[in-house]
Design a protein around this nucleic acid. Structure first.
Lengths: 340, 340
DNA sequence: TGATATAATTTAAACGTTTAAATAAACCAT
DNA sequence: ATGGTTTATTTAAACGTTTAAATTATATCA
């Protein structure tokens, strides 16, 4: 149905090779023939068949991303922002993005195998690295190009982009402490995630550096969802000496904390301070607007995609392991500790 | 590097055709040779090259989806749920999902052209149909397979899945009216969306059927974001006779309404009732949990993908145009009108 | 002018599959 | 045994590109 190289060649009265050269600009072609070829291309509305091109070149010009649904909630706005970054960078280089999910009942491993072995993508993006991450050992073993969002926790060496979560939480804690808070609750991420440890370290370090004690009762593990945060605050409020500020490991959980606080009649930012982590769009638009630690997720998506494309094209990226500094976003959900 | 059909054939001592037959099960092969071939496949860890297969068959076994970011906000949890549905159904049929975004500066049209003409996908999924939808006229003209989430507003005939938005809002309104509400605000979706009209119709019809007057001042247009809902309520509260209930055209906007209400010291569900539309995961976990109209987005994703795959495979789907009944999800954000 | 360098174009193989058509082998009934 | 079926397997072309190598045409120079 659609026009092929051959059709164009016939119409222009040249060989398919010449057409190919014109299309790709890889070889000199005389201006006259180039003219004729371009005219034929236009008149036939020819577009190259990417599939054939891939087969020939053994490249697919496609990046793959397998949603790690086990970790992040579907409702997490995080991913679309990440995807948007990846997608925009990919299209800049004429790459496409292949998304797969883990179907119910299937193992994550089997999905990775399918994608890798079927040669559908040139490289993969792995998000939310975990301790003893099976995905990473598999890809490394296969020698398959990939870049991770999230660094390694076990001494493996692979290309990644990450945000310095420890520093981020540390900064946030300094902010809270400078506001006079002394009892600060922390809602941690699932411990399987590498970033959970880093962020928790930031919490502990900040306590230590400020001469504050670490109370295990002030740390609880959330499940990354809004209700995780909600339940966490309920727990804190049930204690004899509830915290005056709560640091949640993600914005979504922070929103849950805010909701719970409001339901208990507390005014967030005055009676209790709440901080998040991520700075998703939700944070700026929540009420009160959420003080949080900014992870430039869109930019990370772009970075990761760019690095992956470089690796695919054989050019070792300048920086194989990027750690971005986090940025404090002070908004209205935090304020002076009550009674100060 | 990786093993090909030829490698397997050589090792098993048969022709590539035989291996292909074994792999696809399309032609009888004697048990003995099948045995040998399977052994070779296993020992070489052979996986078919999907690219080559696609080239040959002129099919790519890939569904395409181009994010309509202009309409929905990136932060809308809606899409990941939709994507998950599409993805799961796609993998069920061994289809993959190719996602594209509209890069800054590019036109939506150019992206559609690129994807269609490059033969990367067998069909496209179009979400959030608009009035005079350029995407749909283009795809129809090209004879390119597609299925839409959202029906048509201008008398075009194409396959789609939609939820009966009019009925949905109507049901919700009945719920509010039965609770004694008489002044009900409505936060509408951007009018370019086909579904905006249907939902608004439901609002008007419910008023009419219940002998209530339609006050244009009680209808405002939101932008699908949380802050859209926030601003809408601010507007309503500034009126002499503010509504006792607000129906938002999407959950995200409803959350904004709730936030605004709480900031004004109103107890949602008692002082003011708030309804949403979508029933995304946010709805169930908001505080108070949001009464809303359920759109089974995950299921719609599966349906749309399933229909598209059928169309691609040449089998006209039984139902070309599916309109799903909405379902009322009564939670705690709605209650009796104050003073009743 | 003829040899030679240079530029432009074509030829043809390759990428890894599928599949219609051809061939070979095995079985059966006469 | 002979020819006719049936069953199993192979041959080879095709899908739409790319690209090294070969060929042809054109310009350069002694």
């Amino acid at each position: 149905m659609a026009a092929t190289l051959k059709d164009v060649a016939r119409l222009a009265g040249v060989s398919t090779a010449t057409v190919s050269y014109v299309v790709n600009g890889t070889v000199r072609v005389s201006p006259q023939t180039r003219e004729r070829v371009l005219a034929a291309i236009k008149s036939l509305d020819y577009h190259p068949n990417v599939i054939a091109r891939s087969l020939q070149g053994n490249r697919t010009s496609t990046l793959g991303f397998i949603l790690p649904f086990k970790e992040r909630q579907v409702s997490d706005p995080f991913f679309l922002e990440f995807l948007a970054g990846i997608g925009d960078e990919a299209t800049r280089y004429n790459f496409d993005l292949l998304i797969s999910t883990i179907p119910q009942g299937a193992s994550e491993r089997s999905v990775y195998e399918r994608v890798v072995k079927s040669r559908r993508v040139d490289g993969l993006i792995v998000a939310d690295t975990r301790h003893n991450d099976e995905r990473i050992t598999y890809l490394t073993r296969q020698g398959f190009p990939f870049v991770a969002f999230g660094r390694d926790g076990d001494g493996l060496d692979f290309p990644y982009v990450d945000v310095d979560g420890q520093e981020g939480v540390y900064l946030g804690m300094q902010h809270l402490i400078s506001l006079g808070h002394r009892r600060i609750g922390y809602v941690s991420l699932p411990p399987s995630l590498v970033c959970a440890s880093h962020r928790l370290n930031g919490y502990k370090k900040a306590l230590r550096d400020n001469g504050l004690d670490y109370h295990p009762s002030l740390v609880t593990v959330g499940d990354l969802s809004q209700s995780g945060g909600y339940r966490a605050l309920e727990g804190f409020l049930g204690q004899l000496q509830p915290p005056t500020a709560v640091f949640a490991g993600s914005d979504l959980m922070a929103l849950g904390v805010i909701n719970a606080a409001q339901e208990h009649g507390l005014v967030v930012g005055r009676d209790i301070s709440v901080m998040g982590f991520d700075d998703t769009q939700l944070a700026a638009h929540s009420h009160p607007p959420l003080t949080t630690v900014r992870q430039p997720v869109y930019r990370i998506g772009k970075l990761v995609a760019g690095m992956l494309i470089q690796i695919i094209q054989g050019a070792e990226p300048k920086e194989r392991q990027v750690i971005l500094p986090p940025e404090l976003q002070i908004r209205e959900s935090t304020g002076p500790a009550p009674g100060k």
